[in-house]
Amino acid sequence: MWRTQWQLVQGAITPYIFSVPTVLLTLLAVGLYALGWRRLAAQGRRPSWWRLLSFGVGVLLCYVVMHTQFDYYARFMFFMHRLQHMVLHHLGAFLIALSNPLPIFAAAFGARRFPRLALVWRPLRRLLFDPVVATVLFVGLIFFWLSPVVHFDAMLNLNLYELMNWSMLVDGVIFWLVILDPRDPDDARTSRFGVRFLMLLAALFPQILLGAYITFSDPGLYDVYAVCGRAWPMSAATDQVLGGIFTWIPPAMMTILGALVVLRLYVRHESKKGESHAPSADCPDHSGFRPGTGQL
């Protein structure tokens, strides 16, 4: 009895196609995070458990959709593929960014500095975290990987498939990092809250339009699932309608959720400014990490 149940679990968590980059990148992210966490805790600056929970659940969700049997269904059913990307680009990426992980990653390196790496990283970061670039990339990648010709190739070519999933995850995390950055824009020179609202708005409508277009188009828009066979005999029309709805509604809801978090950050910073104009001891430093407060 227990053995059969264990076999079921084992079957479910076994990756459909083992991916070395996925394992290495996940281990690297988790390892660096754990190291940073330990260093901060040793200095008496342990971040809140909420942040750990948000990061952990985000990473776990992304891993599950990329590297278990879920991935098998995502490769052979369009609507499962849309669910996979919803987790990678929206839910998982959102939770990872919400946990404000960059200061913890930075703490993993301690006092060590990498001037050469910084030379490459800083302009890249400035570019990718630019509100216009981040929004265009966020929406552009959805459209790019969902254009039928590109989608067809990505589903046939293993390397392209992995590039698709990882680009969605990395891009999702970057977009949500810009949106959910908890630092005061005045101090940290990050995007202002109004700009973030506009970013969300700019990302929302193209996604709704695309989702509606897929939902109401004639079936067969993504014929790669017919050509390569579905995981079970579901009609192309049902698969596409479900896929369209999953492109349309949950991402739109995530955008609203993002807007609520931005609103909360805005109110908090404004009320803080109202209390005192002078910078106080617990103001965020430029690493974006505030010990003890456990803010997200």
Binding site: L158, W232, P233
Partner: peptide
């Protein structure tokens, strides 16, 4: 990069199979 799957059999034991 292809797969297959089976539908539930009907009362005569016939079933559809999805394939590439």
């Amino acid at each position: 990069r292809t797969t297959y799957g089976y539908d539930e059999p009907d009362e005569n034991g016939n079933y559809l199979v999805s394939h590439g």
